[in-house]
């Protein structure tokens, strides 16, 4: 039964997940293509100097900041919007499994796909960074991009909440809450500046993983 549910989720999101993964890898590749070009055209020492002392954030190239957010939004919409068409989610609720558990499995599968794609991007980013930069610059870059990937998960959880909410008025209000909360992960900041905030941002991200249960419950109870 669970395998079937997971397979159904995979069928819904597969193309979006593949496109997001490809886009992420292309963007990371593009960052280092630019880096390699800059290395060739200006002295390496000056490139390092710009990063260390002139706040040059090489990892922001190609709008990398927004890639996890866009990917998570696409996957969440692909996964949950079809469930709201003709209230198809009710078919899942009629299965002989715990309703909350079914929702959590859906959500965990989506989050796992996001995690796998993020891990691939981060591995590629770290590997390529280590070719060009010393550990200090790589570590600073990873701390700086970490909130963007956490933001991806938050957007995924909150989009699921909004899409599954049965009442339009509340969808709008949830959207407003999302608009107040998501920017906390996307502040413009110097390299490594996010380090003190990361633990709490991580806790909020994990806590929000159960957000879907709320609108799922309202859906089940027939709120219109």
């Amino acid at each position: 039964m669970w395998k079937s549910i997971i397979y159904k989720e995979w069928l819904k999101i597969r193309w979006f997940a593949i496109i997001y993964a490809a886009l992420g890898i292309l963007v990371v590749g593009n960052i280092f293509l630019k880096g390699q070009h800059d290395f060739e055209f200006s002295q390496e020492a000056y490139y390092w100097y710009s990063i260390l002392f002139n706040q040059y954030r090489f990892y922001e190239y190609s709008l990398f900041k927004f890639v996890p957010l866009i990917g998570a939004l696409a996957i969440a919409l692909a996964q949950y919007f079809p469930e709201t068409v003709n209230k198809r989610i009710k078919l899942t609720f009629h299965l002989p499994v715990n309703e909350n558990k079914a929702l959590m499995v859906m959500m965990l599968f989506g989050a796992f796909c996001l995690f796998a794609i993020a891990a691939a991007q981060l591995l590629l980013f770290t590997g390529l960074s280590l070719v060009y930069f010393p550990a200090e610059i790589v570590q600073s870059a990873l701390i700086s991009i970490a909130p963007w990937f956490l933001c991806g998960f938050v957007v995924y959880f909150l989009t699921a909440l909004i899409v599954m909410e049965p009442v339009w008025k509340y969808r709008f209000l949830y959207l407003l809450v999302t608009a107040t909360f998501v920017p906390l992960y996307l502040q413009t900041a110097a390299a490594r500046a996010y380090s003190p905030a990361l633990p709490l941002l991580g806790v909020f991200t994990v806590l929000l993983s159960v957000a879907l249960l709320f609108s799922g419950y309202r859906f089940r109870k027939g709120e219109m």
Binding site: N100, V177, A179, L184, F204, L207, L208, L212, L213
Partner: peptide, 21 residues
């Protein structure tokens, strides 16, 4: 669990609003 998810969302809103308002 649904109750907990609601309080988590309320906490999220409180955090977001205490920044924005």
């Amino acid at each position: 669990m649904v109750k907990i998810s609601r309080y988590i969302l309320v906490l999220t809103a409180v955090v977001g609003l205490s920044v924005v308002l």
